[in-house]
Design a protein around this nucleic acid. Structure first.
Lengths: 110, 110
DNA sequence: AATCTACTTGGCTATATTGCCAAGTACTTA
DNA sequence: TAAGTACTTGGCAATATAGCCAAGTAGATT
């Protein structure tokens, strides 16, 4: 495999990896509705604020969100709006799994 | 956060996590062109066959691929064709990063 | 200035992931 | 049946991730 290909794959993997956590997915969904401060996300997620802050920093490192300090709060927002379309496909993977599961059940029923 | 929401987020995170590795992204791309046996993928990736086999098993667990044994080879193929559209958005994240980087350079130039 | 609120960062432990080698399975061919 | 090919699985060491607490920073309030 070429070195360029590998670098490109690594860059894409980094973005996906950043999204690949339940709390971070939640944040992305929530931020798709508009900007949120760390304290709002913390309350919704119900983890320690330091944990939430670190998750947000992962999203920021991956280029998915932008932060802006206003007063003593820090607001985060999505940097790329299309992120959400993303989930359509993830859903179809999950639906295919459900389908397979039920067809297994059908086989058992026969 | 509700328990249902959390479960759903975990399911989606699992799919993304399975994709979030350079070699596995490569496999997905390659499989989008058609089925491939483990040995073909192994040669392209250049890792140990056991490593490649384990990566494929991660993709399978996540419901992204299906395997079929024919003779003494095992062929893998994508289970959900839309996976590739996925990457359009990842690309736009990466492009946004490049843009930001170059605007930083512009600032330095001023 | 002292205190409060909202965060970030360091440090730690527990847990998960990665990738290799070695060993096992399952077909195929000699 | 013996040996080869194509895989999968177990086991291990190195590395990365997750989440909490404690400590630090920065702006707001008293």
């Amino acid at each position: 495999m070429e070195i360029e290909t590998r670098k490109h794959l690594e860059a894409r993997a980094k973005v996906l990896k950043a999204m690949a956590h339940p709390s971070r997915l939640f944040m992305i969904e929530e931020l798709s509705k508009g900007e949120r401060c760390v304290c709002e996300l913390t309350e919704m997620i119900g983890a320690d604020i330091s944990t939430v802050s670190k998750h947000l920093s992962v999203l920021k490192q991956a280029g998915l969100v932008i932060d802006e300090k206003r007063g003593n709060q820090v607001f985060y927002r999505l940097r790329v709006p299309c992120i959400l379309n993303f989930f359509g496909c993830v859903e179809s993977v999950l639906e295919a799994q459900v389908k397979d599961h039920s067809s297994h059940l059908n086989i058992l029923r026969m």
